[in-house]
Amino acid sequence: MKLSTQNKRTKAAAAVSLSLLLLILIWHVMSIRMNIPIILPTPAETGAALVSTIMSQDFLIHVGTTVLRGLESFLLIFLISTVLGLLSGMFPIVGFFLTPVLVISKATPVMAIILLAFIWFTSNTVPIFSAFLMAFPVMFTTVENGVHQVSKELVEMSKVYRFSRYSRLRYLLVPSITPYIITGAKSSLSLIWKVVIAAEVLTSPSLGLGARMHSAQINLETAQVMSWTVIAIILTAISDILFSLILRFITISPSHKEVWNDH
């Protein structure tokens, strides 16, 4: 059984690598045939640009600024959505009250939010605000759903045995929804990176990954644009991997296994 799982994993990894190689090959062939580096630089040229970008003096400042903006937004979302999601799961009236905000923020195009935010705020605040508005519903809905999934049988047990409000929260609700909080945090963070970078591109603050991307585009440094894109992808990948590790840790620890399997 273990062997076959490992076999499957090896096969999957081989398929992914092959597909990645194929994409790079297509890219390479197209750029060679086109032969206009301003429009499509070769993978090698992009790689060289990536190395020089990473080696440049202010690389860490730009990436760091973007990461800080993302994390600031994430922290706000994490706290507010968890509290509101819990409340809404327990008291449906809270959910109804929030419905207009959720519908609007789900239906409004990202660009419209960024443009409006740019009218209201400074270019430093726009990425944080826009990311908050876009990713809040994702986390909120996941947490709310988690509350709905709490076992009715266990709730009854807690009522019969007179659990206090605190005990019900501490021993039943929080452990039940922890996997949902982590899943919600993971999806909202990957959305946050996209929106923060888009907002940086549109508002061009003095620092930030998106701002660099924008200035490279204006200067027709296509290889630079692509290398910043690769960095953005790596950023998202790192946060995804981190959350997957947390999730795996939780599902492996015996206390959560059963619940996780149940859902």
Partner: peptide
């Protein structure tokens, strides 16, 4: 009154050990 209820299923908290499962309801 205070009531003990034995359900058809055990209804234990899956995140806690047996001793915790028995001592948590005693908190009140």
């Amino acid at each position: 009154g205070s009531v003990s209820y034995l359900f058809q299923e055990p209804r234990l908290l899956p995140w806690f050990t047996l001793v915790q499962n028995i001592s948590i309801p005693l908190k009140s």
